[in-house]
Design a protein around this nucleic acid. Structure first.
Lengths: 339, 339
DNA sequence: CAAACAATTTCAAACGTTTGCATAAGGAAT
DNA sequence: ATTCCTTATGCAAACGTTTGAAATTGTTTG
């Protein structure tokens, strides 16, 4: 009932564990008959190699840590799938750790992962880590020469590996699109301060307005986090302005869904009275009514690229790489204006 | 740069590894001074216990396997959060494996998890496993006395542990609600054949109609899987009927979103001309227009209960438990009829 | 017959940690 | 001075596997 070991098999055949090990691993310099008998017996008894002992011996665990603020959004789960699709065939297992944006939890998880001697760590750092700028827990990862790959949310350091979307460009494209279809007063529901990704999107929005010589109206820039509910109050505030906007660029699709609700309650027409564009291309965005224009980021490819980056790191630990994937503008009904 | 070990520290202080081990673990019968010096030195050098060796010695890894068909839906990610919220504080790490409904992948993952000697396995079995009814890979888990806990999708066996929602009751409640608000021809977009959860929901629907002496009209029962797109064609087919339905019960919220699109294209009014109710209470369902009535299942509590079940299994491996959480009817606009 | 060789197997160490038992040193009581 | 106790440390085994080097056996060759 308990696990059968190589030693058990060795006892059974009155030979040494080494012989059993070599037989099970199909070594060339072993008698073909003993090999067969041992393999058959192992098969029959349901022998399964204890990877823990192997990990101890070979100093690698074929396990990777993935530390994420959350996994409830499409982007994250698609990214994990991307990682998996590359790494599962190579025999890696993924230890997924959800931090809920907590620094404390992130720190604990990273320590446990290191203690478990994972072969690499993928991390999208928590908002708290951002704002407090504390990277000691990550420093230890790097000190130990364990490949560390940032995803989406990097720290500023250029010596690190990271894979992300060109959020700045995406935001610029979204804003430019709204300008192109004739919007004059473009509001932005921005993400939390201190989160690089949100900052980049804000910058793209701001710089695009600047480029087209639109005024930057502070009253049109309101803060949300990435959740639906967080958009409700700011959106209401927008429409209470003496001079309300004719377009909204949301930091992600979720806040646009929140905005949609307010807009519909007000009885305003999308896109004629207010155009909306989001960011992320959540699967559901296509099925909203009206369908939501958005900036797509290549979620699964991000995971795949991150995996490749890790694999390269194993062989050539020196080179650090920044991979920035281009976003894509997806125009749907919520910004489909005639002009 | 490489990891510092207990032996290194022992060499440094010219003492035995046992002394270091005891010092680091704050054993009572150790000299308080040596204890302090060793602890300080370990701290300074960034010593971190190698859990792999400990796992080998103590035959437990403080790691759990979670095998899921996908993690892209709210229900799954919330469930994982539930697991985490209980198990993280106890020092467990979660190995999450996404099978994409593939039997082959599920089998490979379970084998790797067993080889890694995880302390327990949570599994929501893949559709392929269902249809082909092959459980050998799970049999080995049970043979080894590794706690195995089914989530959502169990096999029929009463000797197993499982946590799920009362899908039958939920479907019954949804159907009954539609009847109560006056619907006469209630269609069902059902889930894939062979998946227990989908079967249960179908049965609840059918039995409720039966109970209220409604005719069971086969032309009103069409198959989808759990994805948005899969609902488009069936919904169109429903409205091409000579006598179309006045209500739709979807196997989950996703198919309702798909149905919504078709309905809106047809220019039909929800709920007046066609009422809709889903299942799962996806966060977005509240923000659809009109907001979607649905049956909520307690996603996070499912994870929490499953975690508790695992903890109980460790102490008392004999008792098998079925925990079935009650669903909740959430009435929103999509079924808010006057009568 | 001795030497060389090939084929197969065993030995022993290693990975890092914990832990029951033994040991050592020192002090106190007899 | 012997015994006993206390306190602190060391020894050695154990967990399961792999692997370089050594050993064993049998066979061929000079």
């Amino acid at each position: 009932m308990p696990n059968i070991t190589i030693k058990d098999i060795a006892r059974k055949f009155k030979c040494s564990p080494s012989t059993v090990s070599r037989a099970l691993n199909n070594y060339e310099h072993t008698n073909i008959e003993t090999r067969n008998t041992i393999q058959e017996y192992a098969q029959k008894m349901g022998y399964q190699r204890n990877s823990v002992s192997l990990s101890l011996l070979q100093k690698n665990t074929k396990t990777l840590g993935i530390v994420l603020p959350n996994i409830s959004q499409f982007h994250e789960s698609a990214m994990v799938e991307g990682l998996q699709s590359v790494l599962q065939p190579l025999g890696y297992l993924l230890n997924i750790c959800v931090t809920n944006e907590s620094y404390q939890l992130e720190k604990e998880y990273v320590e446990r992962l290191m203690s478990n001697r994972v072969d690499g760590v993928f991390i999208s750092i928590a908002q708290e880590t951002y704002s407090e700028v504390r990277y000691e827990h990550l420093q230890t990862v790097m000190n130990r020469n364990v490949p560390l790959i940032f995803i989406d949310r990097q720290n500023g350091d250029k010596k690190t590996n990271c894979v992300s979307t060109d959020d700045y460009l995406g935001a610029y494209m979204a804003t430019e699109h709204l300008i192109n279809v004739g919007c004059k007063r473009i509001a932005h529901l921005r993400g939390p301060l201190g989160v690089n990704l949100a900052e980049q999107r804000f910058n793209g929005y701001r710089d695009c307005l600047y480029k087209y010589r639109f005024p930057i109206d502070e009253s049109l820039i309101l803060s949300a986090n990435f959740k639906i509910e967080s958009a409700i109050e700011p959106t209401k505030a927008l429409f209470d302005l003496p001079n309300p906007p004719d377009a909204i660029f949301g930091v992600n699709d979720q806040v646009c869904f929140g905005a949609f609700q307010v807009i519909k309650e007000k009885g305003l027409k999308i896109p004629d009275e207010i155009a909306v564009i989001g960011f992320d291309n959540t699967p559901i965005s296509e099925y909203f009514y009206p369908s939501l224009s958005t900036i797509a980021r290549k979620s699964k490819p991000i995971g795949e690229e991150a995996a490749q980056l890790f694999l390269r790191q194993i062989n050539e630990p020196s080179i650090a790489n920044h991979i920035i994937l281009p976003p894509e503008l997806i125009v749907r009904r919520s910004s489909a204006l005639a002009n």
